[in-house]
């Protein structure tokens, strides 16, 4: 068993044990007529606070608060554990009240987005290494512009060197839009090469009607198409890896706001913070 697998097994095992312990403790407390909602509520709030602090930890890189990787591991497994505490807190039923329903919904969205994010970071990161050149996300527009410029240079040079406009016509009809901006976001996300193969096949078929110099140009264009498609692939996956946080992080803030409101209400209406 390699180190990563061992670590995952250990962490997952500890999480499962902790979850079982929480469930057992909840049963015991229920039996003892203790207020499990209060205990699980405080527990859940502390756990969510810790999870939210991960974002803070990333901003305070200089402080000796442990490695980001360790925080991420804790973030993942404690987040998984919150699902059990959340279920215990709600007695495994959706609440009826407005505030509680909003709060529960926010938690579920944050949790679900987190799980999705975990899945994406596990799966997309691997896929990023399998196709195209690994590039910085912020530089992708620069590279795309550069490819577009290169393609236009090829096409325009062809017009100057040859009287035929076949390649230029093909570019205008089929390639210009493709090179203009990022394309096929969702197809890349689901690992579909349908567009790429279709376009390349079309270019190959088109080559039969071209002369030698035009075919050479078309070959260079094929290379650019592949580069642009790989760049789109990188963009699609990297954007997804970045943009899932646009749901996860903002909703976490909303979750904290409504958790505070919920805490105020339950404390005032059912027995004080103590």
């Amino acid at each position: 068993m390699n180190t990563l697998a061992a670590r995952r097994t250990r962490n997952l095992g500890m999480t499962v044990v902790a979850a079982l312990l929480i469930l057992w403790l909840s049963d015991v407390m229920t039996t003892a007529l203790q207020d499990t909602s209060r205990m699980s509520g405080w527990g859940l709030l502390a756990m969510i606070g810790f999870l939210a602090a991960y974002n803070l930890r990333k901003k305070l890189a200089l402080l000796p608060l442990g490695s980001s990787a360790s925080w991420l591991q804790l973030h993942i497994y404690i987040a998984l554990l919150t699902a059990v505490v959340f279920g215990v807190h709600l007695n495994w039923k959706m609440p009826n009240g407005l505030v509680e329903s909003i709060l529960a919904l926010l938690y579920l969205l944050v949790f679900a987005s987190g799980v999705v994010g975990l899945f994406l970071s596990r799966s997309l990161a691997k896929r990023l290494t399998t196709r195209g050149e690994e590039v910085l996300f912020e530089r992708i527009p620069v590279y795309r512009k550069r490819i577009q410029a290169e393609v236009e240079a090829i096409v325009f040079s062809g017009l100057e060197e040859s009287e035929s406009t076949a390649v230029a016509q093909f570019y205008a009809d089929r390639l210009r839009e493709f090179f203009l901006q990022t394309r096929n976001f969702w197809q890349h996300l689901v690992q579909s090469n349908r567009f790429r193969f279709g376009l390349l096949k079309e270019m190959q078929a088109y080559g039969r009607y071209l002369d030698e110099s035009e075919r050479a140009m078309m070959t260079r264009l094929v290379t650019c198409v592949e580069a642009k498609d790989d760049l789109d692939y990188q963009f699609s996956l990297q954007a997804t890896l970045k943009y899932w946080l646009f749901i996860h992080v903002p909703l976490t803030y909303a979750l904290l706001v409504f958790a505070a409101l919920h805490l105020l209400l339950v404390s005032a209406f059912s027995g004080g913070v103590s």
């Binding site: 196709r131 195209g132 620069v142 590279y143 498609d229």
Partner: peptide, 18 residues
Amino acid sequence: MSEGPSHASSFDENDYSR
């Protein structure tokens, strides 16, 4: 993977990026 030009090698590192 396509064998097009390397983006990184063609990138002007002097370009200011933040």
